[in-house]
């Protein structure tokens, strides 16, 4: 099998590290990206990532871990509309649904 579903997790904010930007360069159609820990700041509508997210036609889905958003006071903030919020059970489901998980 040379086509695999892949989950990418990133835990750095886009201004503290270029990991998210690098990860997105290696993200292909059918892949999922999950923002955890400090990477959840990237989900803010106005962040260094604004305008840099893959568009809807890319086949890439971006998720953000809700408990990490809440911890950082971001739940009530203006977040990027295409980024889906999930909790830990959702994180577990994403891992099972994808063949390979890369933690950047």
């Amino acid at each position: 099998m040379d086509w695999k579903r892949m989950l990418h997790t990133v835990n750095k904010s886009p201004t503290e590290s270029d990991k998210l930007e690098t990860c997105l360069r290696f993200t292909q159609a059918g892949h999922a990206v999950l923002l955890i820990e400090n990477a959840v700041y990237a989900a803010l509508a106005e962040s260094a990532m604004a305008g840099q997210w893959p568009d809807k036609s890319s086949g890439i889905t971006v998720y953000v871990l809700t408990p990490d958003l809440a911890a950082r006071g971001l739940l009530g903030r203006d977040l990027h509309p295409d980024i889906r919020q999930i909790d830990y059970p959702g994180f577990v489901r994403l891992v099972t649904e994808n063949d390979v998980v890369q933690s950047w």
Partner: peptide, 10 residues
């Protein structure tokens, strides 16, 4: 190359 892997560690 990444899509050919079973495990990827950074």
């Amino acid at each position: 190359l990444m899509t050919e892997q079973d495990i990827i560690l950074h």
